[in-house]
Design a protein around this nucleic acid. Structure first.
Lengths: 234, 234
DNA sequence: GCCAAATCAAGAGCAGTGCTCTCGTCAGCG
DNA sequence: CGCTGACGAGAGCACTGCTCTTGATTTGGC
């Protein structure tokens, strides 16, 4: 019978309502900026403001839900775009990741700001958030892992680099232990650096730090990220 | 006579009042986070809220003033710290800049977020703001310029790097033309990349993206920035 | 030295916000 | 089929940014 469905009717319409709130909230985020108004969302939904509180305990709760969705959306996008590249094309895979991140960010600047901009006042990252945040960087880990096991990673790029201090080696090893265990620490360290550069550049572009400096955004980004690939050693 | 002073008494107390408002606003920024309340500032100042509007046309105006001050404070700090290093020690000068930026940011996280985090909703950068924002990066430009004129810059670091596309070379040349005219375009491009990495890393640290990943923040930062110096070619 | 003019702080008030509490209503569950 | 729990509406509180008016105080020109 219908009533035996895994989710009761009540639970289903509740989930639908929750989704609808998030959709409208995202729309408001895209137009009005970061200062999301619960009351405005309620108005758009044709409902009184207090009704929202049946679904989200507070405005911060709503924002947290949007943050989680954003991390997952970015992660999904990166995964999909990277998967479409031939496995052997390591540079192509890295560039696909970079383009996916930037493209996603340019399409949803306010959602990007939500997760990679200044954290909201009371910024506590729930555990499930950090799991979702890991998805994108995991893709990068897989790339350098593949590079390492197929012996196609340069361990020495550039002039005699500084040796890794023990503390740094420790951090780097722990960070790479799960997804990139066969990658030399020095390469993992450079990959983390490239990761930072990727998001640094996207943030600079989105937050206006490149205004009046860089005109050809696509070409500049592409070149710098390619240089990062060479720097990492793939 | 006293009355002949260049600034009238009125103008002087006005400047003092303006400063006092900014000081209290900065304090509120440090404690309460980014959502600065004009009324709370007025309360702390022992004045009614509408009185603030004699000195700042709006809350955004106050924030803009704080942003300008923050840029100048950061620029001043970077300039001072870099000046203290011996001119010939190019790596030391670069590291001093990096440490100055990070130290300044760690001391005033909310002011850093104000200028390098997500821009406030209606984000229009007044012309004087971009001038102040240039101070810090100018120091970096001077370093690579000094490196270039003394012939101590590696133009080829690492494996055969990608050639600079014309559009990128154009942007890079314009960016470096004033303060670093003798630096090869490829080096300027890498310096810009290092600059992005510096602020990317500071932002990641401040905005919580390094939580549960990097434990030894000082050592990690120091190593990565040293690696950037090598990457740039100094 | 006086007086008009400019400047100032105070207060009331408006529209908006997040959030809480209460109160009928109605529909899904047992 | 009846009950109970979830639900939306509404009022209300404390707060916000901002505007306007009012009365006091200072300033600068005569």
């Amino acid at each position: 019978m219908y009533c035996m469905k895994a989710t009761s009717i009540r639970a289903r319409v509740r989930a639908e309502m929750t989704d609808e709130i998030k959709v409208i909230a995202r729309r408001h985020l895209a137009t009005d900026g970061a200062n999301l108004s619960l009351r405005a969302v309620a108005r758009d939904l044709g409902v009184v403001s207090s009704a929202i509180y049946r679904y989200f305990a507070s405005r911060d709760d709503l924002l947290t839900a949007l943050i989680l969705d954003a991390y997952n959306s970015l992660g999904q996008t990166v995964e999909d775009r990277e998967r479409a590249v031939e496995r052997d094309d390591l540079t192509g895979r890295w560039m696909a990741v970079c383009d996916a991140v930037r493209g996603w960010a340019l399409e949803r600047p306010h959602e990007y700001a939500l997760i990679y901009g200044s954290p909201v006042p009371g910024y506590q990252a729930p555990p499930d958030t950090i799991a979702a945040a890991t998805r994108a960087v995991t893709v990068l880990g897989t790339i350098i892992q593949d590079a390492a096991v197929t012996g196609r990673v340069q361990t020495r790029t550039g002039p005699p680099a500084a040796e890794l201090p023990d503390e740094v080696a420790e951090d780097v090893r722990r960070a790479g232990s799960v997804i990139a265990p066969d990658v030399p620490d020095a390469v993992t360290a450079r990959a983390l650096s490239a990761w930072v550069t990727l998001f640094g550049l996207v943030s600079f572009e989105l937050f206006g730090q490149l205004n009046n400096v860089v005109q050809h955004r696509d070409e500049f980004f592409g070149h710098q990220m390619l240089a990062q690939a060479r720097f990492v050693g793939i």
